[in-house]
Design a protein around this nucleic acid. Structure first.
Length: 443
RNA sequence: CGGGGCGUGGCGCAGUCUGGCAGCGCGACGGUUUUGGGAACCGUAGGUCGCAAGUUCGAAUCUUGCCGUCCCGACCA
């Protein structure tokens, strides 16, 4: 820690209104550059990358192709789809030195469709799903809540291309499955809810919402949906029936946002299961048919040899927003409580008596043992009192802490403490590392 | 865009009404004593008081304009 950049704040910055924003600032994860635009400091950047990595793994598992498109796009493509005017003030428009109209991409349907139409000719090259994780800019009227509603934000956005509606619906269902697993892995209970389609358009859409007091959306649902779990279920993402069954399982119980809420249908649920809450939107999937492929001429030749516009869908996960959403869902009065899967470090090592030969060498050895076991440790080797070190560890929310004290180390014992439960075990260092290795296995 | 705040050292704030040496707490740095839940003492550094113009002998303070930022509303894949 003496070599790390971790600017902890004892006092809460005045501008932060919600708990995730306060904790991210206090834990030195982010720093505001301007309204709705943030720098990700080393600790925050670690979390952001872990979230992004889980997103990638689950996309690739579902058979989707990672790529990277630019943030700056030519305006002409957007004129072609008709959205250059439609998108309005929320789109940041820029011109280059030659006076060409450019824009900072708020989404990528136009660009991906342009790539597709230039390269794909036959239905035999379908189905195809391309995605990337890239920074977006939407010039919100009023950014707020830190990274939860920023203007610049990191988003995974994907686009599927299918020969007909039936295939595209399978792509939709497959995305539902991959998204459910993605959120589960982050320790979140994200509920798919029927959604409005907004300016992206289309007639088939679900949003994924994480329950949180501070959420911007009011939601209504049958609490049976909270019991659903994908867990370790092995899923063949190419199997239409399997994906459709999971889709039906998760969209069976009533779950709607304010915008699509149907009080009559909600009223038919047994009263004890009727639940109202606030929630944070962390993703959305759409099927929009030929909305972009028709005006932009993205066609393939079908099995009968005739050109047909491809059926498309798009899907988004708010990667940077998730960092905030996870904190909203997992914190206590002392600080953040990271799920094992996204924690910036696996274990914090607290040397209670810095400068004591016994604790110094034991702490250094445990640090090396942890690294040898494939773990990321953070060693608090600062000349601070124990209380300050504990408070820092609690604030930054690492799931585990190893405490190295002079009394214990004389008999070769350290303490392994869970951030979530506070439970403490007294163990030899090797045993503590072994327990951690098992706790993180598969994450 | 409408309404309401705020802008003074890294952070949190007082000082502005009523013009007169730019302050407090935390943090940082150095030293000493400490070390099992945010230590104590001594010392040090750090400020174009958001920017510009104006009024005045004199402006953080008054006037005007601008900028930034936060909150409520409208907006929001």
């Amino acid at each position: 820690m003496s070599k790390y950049f971790l600017p902890i704040l004892k006092e809460t910055p005045a501008e932060a209104q919600i708990v995730s924003h306060r904790l991210m600032l206090r834990a030195g994860m982010i720093r505001q550059a301007s309204s709705g635009i943030y720098s990700w400091l080393p600790l925050g950047y670690r979390v952001l990358r872990k979230i992004e990595e889980i997103v990638h793994e689950e996309q690739i598992r579902a058979g989707h192709n990672p790529m990277l498109m630019p943030t700056l796009q030519p305006a002409d493509l957007w004129r072609e789809s008709g959205r250059y005017e439609d998108y309005g003030e929320e789109m940041l428009r820029i011109s280059d030195r030659h006076g060409r109209d450019m824009l900072y991409g708020p989404t990528n349907e136009e660009l991906i469709t342009d790539i597709f139409r230039a390269t794909v000719r036959s239905y035999r090259e379908l189905p195809l799903t391309l995605y990337h994780v890239q920074w977006k800019f939407r010039d919100e009227i009023r950014p707020r809540f830190g990274v939860m509603r920023g203007r610049e934000f990191l988003m995974k956005d994907g686009y599927n291309f299918d020969v007909d509606r039936e295939s595209a619906i399978h792509s939709y269902n497959r995305h539902m499955v991959s998204y459910i697993r993605t959120y589960e892995r982050m320790g979140l209970k994200a509920i798919p809810m029927r959604a409005d389609t907004g300016p992206i358009g289309g007639d088939h859409s679900h949003e994924f919402l994480v329950l949180a007091e501070t959420g911007e959306s009011a939601v209504y649902f049958d609490n049976r949906i909270l019991d659903l779990k994908l867990g370790d279920r092995v899923v063949d993402h190419d199997d239409r029936d399997v994906c459709a069954a999971i889709m039906n399982e998760w969209t069976g119980p009533y779950a709607r946002t304010e915008e699509t809420h149907d009080p009559a249908a909600f009223g038919k649920i047994p009263e004890v299961r009727q639940t109202m809450s606030r929630a944070i939107e962390v993703g959305q999937i759409f099927y929009f048919g030929t909305k972009y492929s028709e005006p932009m001429g993205a066609t393939v030749v079908n099995a009968e040899g005739r050109p047909v516009p491809v059926h498309m869908g798009s899907h988004g996960i708010g990667v940077s927003r998730l960092a905030g959403a996870i904190i909203e869902a997992s914190h206590d009065d002392r600080g953040i409580v990271w799920p094992e899967s996204v924690t910036p470090f696996h274990v914090g090592i607290v040397n209670l008596k810095q400068g004591d030969g016994g604790t110094d060498s034991a702490s250094a050895r445990i640090y090396e043992l942890a690294k040898g076991a494939g773990l990321d440790p953070l060693y608090d080797d600062r000349e601070e009192r124990a209380g300050a070190k504990f408070a820092t560890m609690d604030l930054i929310g690492l799931p585990w802490r190893i405490t190295v004290g002079p009394k214990g180390i004389r008999s070769g014992i350290v303490e392994l403490t869970s951030r979530r439960t506070g439970e403490t075990l007294e163990l030899e260092p090797e045993m503590a590392i072994e327990k951690l290795r098992l706790a993180y296995a598969g994450r």
